[in-house]
Design a protein around this nucleic acid. Structure first.
Length: 474
DNA sequence: ATCCCTTTGAAGAAA
DNA sequence: TTTCTTCAAAGGGAT
């Protein structure tokens, strides 16, 4: 298991996700809140290396009782738990908001998602039914719909939010998109951003790097991405650019569509080549028939070449197709220089495009928070940044983590819809067992000397690069 | 130019 | 069923 296996042994595999929800993070948060910067600095120094040590004994008994079953069940229980907890905090009014206010729609799609295990309703959906019933769902849906519209109009004033122009509504209806935008699409079918932003863009984390709308919405705080130079909001140490509220306040003052906020403009599945990036295709594709919907979303090898791009000309972000540009230029210059190289290139072009894995919860979190962490410390090395992010991840509240788990789950569902035949194994270079590159051959829970040394280096760097006053954030 | 490092989580293969 | 491996993102550093 990827998790640090400092202990536990028997429940390691079963609780990989559980660890994220252990009380350790909360405790650490409390500790960090009350400790001095120097203490935090020292703590970080040690904890960066020995984080797993604190994981083992920190779980309370009650926590242990709630330990979810292995694997996929773990999150469900956690989600259910979060829902239940949220429900307890809420009155019995008609409308009960989602457990994580900043992520208001996450439960709805499950009600219709066909990609749940065993074809049954997801636990979260079941929970929603149990707790509120269909009536509640309708009200919920309506309210969220209104919020979504208002938010979209506020967030993207240039958006063409119209009703009744969704030709593929019916088709999309069957697409069972888990996206909240899908809900919005019921009455706001056309959400076409002038910059080719897919209507479901909100579902994906966007990056200014990959997708740079001419100017960010004026209401967006301004800060400057050190790398792209693109304005980026200045944030307090613990306030996410996407989630205006600090984690501690998330459960109190929800962002209407917090999870819909484009996350620094970076798609979850960025395309490293070509000028266009396509956000995750979803059922919200508008102004397109289902056929074009499919052709625009499925890998080029599954559709005619000229259909590899959506009508917007934006390929799917999860597909890395360096051949797109070549294909486009093939008719002119390249054709004049026919050669064996061309043939070989064509063969390469015909190769199956590289469909990237859907991002997991932590990856989504990293994409969102990396820039902030980088901005807060002088450290630039990703390895060290990731250590900090990993620590922050553990420090997140359950609700916060659940938000990312849910988002990741939706990403996987969407990925499954888009690439039914895709397997993670497809991306294995040389197949399983044949390492693409020498990776860690450490035993679980321990590091080899070389790695440990490097790790220590990062540890020191990370600790030294973080301003003492910012240590609380870590 | 390529790989390594580092994080967590998901998926798949091997044991 | 459990354990192990790979990949996903990111980018500075090492080779």
């Amino acid at each position: 298991m990827p998790q640090l296996n400092g202990g536990g042994g028997d429940d390691l595999g079963a609780n990989d996700e559980l660890i994220s929800f252990k009380d350790e993070g909360e405790q650490e948060e409390k500790i960090s809140e009350n400790s001095s910067a120097e203490r935090d600095l020292a703590d970080v120094k040690s904890s960066l290396v020995n984080e797993s040590e604190t994981n083992q004994n920190s779980s309370s008994d009650s926590e242990a009782e709630r330990r979810p079953p292995p694997r996929s069940e773990s999150f469900r229980d956690k989600s259910r738990e979060s829902l239940e907890e949220a429900a307890k905090r809420q009155d019995g009014g008609l409308f009960k908001g989602p457990p994580y206010p900043g992520y208001p729609f996450i439960m709805i799609p499950d009600l219709t998602s066909p990609y749940l295990p065993n074809g049954s309703l997801s636990p979260t959906a079941r929970t929603l039914h149990i707790q509120s019933g269909s009536t509640h769902y309708s009200a919920y849906k309506t309210i969220e719909h209104q919020i979504a519209i208002q938010y979209l109009q506020m967030k993207w004033p240039l958006l063409d939010v119209q009703a009744g122009s969704l030709q593929s509504r019916q088709a999309l209806k069957d697409a069972r998109s888990p996206s909240p935008a899908h809900i919005v699409s019921n009455k706001v079918p056309v959400v076409q951003h002038p910059h080719h932003v897919h209507p479901l863009t909100p579902l994906i984390t966007y990056s200014n790097e990959h997708f740079t709308p001419g100017n960010p919405p004026p209401h967006l705080p301004a800060d400057v991405d050190p790398k792209t130079g693109i304005p980026r909001p200045p944030h307090p140490p613990d306030i996410s650019p996407y989630y205006p509220l600090s984690p501690g306040t998330v459960g109190q003052i929800p962002h209407p569509l917090g999870w819909l906020v484009p996350q620094q403009g970076q798609p979850v599945y960025p395309i490293t080549t070509g000028g266009f990036r396509h956000p995750y295709p979803t059922a919200l594709t508008v102004n397109a028939s289902m056929s074009s919907f499919l052709s625009s979303r499925f890998p080029p090898h599954m559709v005619p070449p000229h259909h590899t791009l959506h009508t917007t000309g934006i390929p799917h972000p999860a597909i890395v197709t360096p051949t797109v540009k070549q294909e486009s230029s093939q008719s002119d210059v390249a054709s004049l220089h026919s050669s064996k190289h061309q043939d070989s290139k064509k063969e390469e072009e015909k190769k199956k495009p590289h469909i990237k894995k859907p991002l997991n919860a932590f990856m989504l979190y990293m994409k969102e928070m990396r820039a902030k962490v980088v901005a807060e410390c002088t450290l630039k090395e990703s390895a060290a940044i990731n250590q900090i992010l990993g620590r922050r991840w553990h420090a997140l509240s359950r609700e916060e983590q659940a938000k990312y788990y849910e988002l990741a789950r939706k990403e996987r569902q969407l990925h499954m819809q888009l690439y039914p035949g895709w397997s993670a194994r497809d991306n294995y270079v040389g197949g399983y067992g044949k390492k693409k590159k020498r990776k860690r051959d450490k035993q679980p829970g321990e590091t080899n000397g070389e790695k440990k040394s490097a790790f220590a280096t990062y540890k020191v760097k990370a600790a030294a690069s973080v301003h003492p006053l910012q240590m609380e954030a870590y």
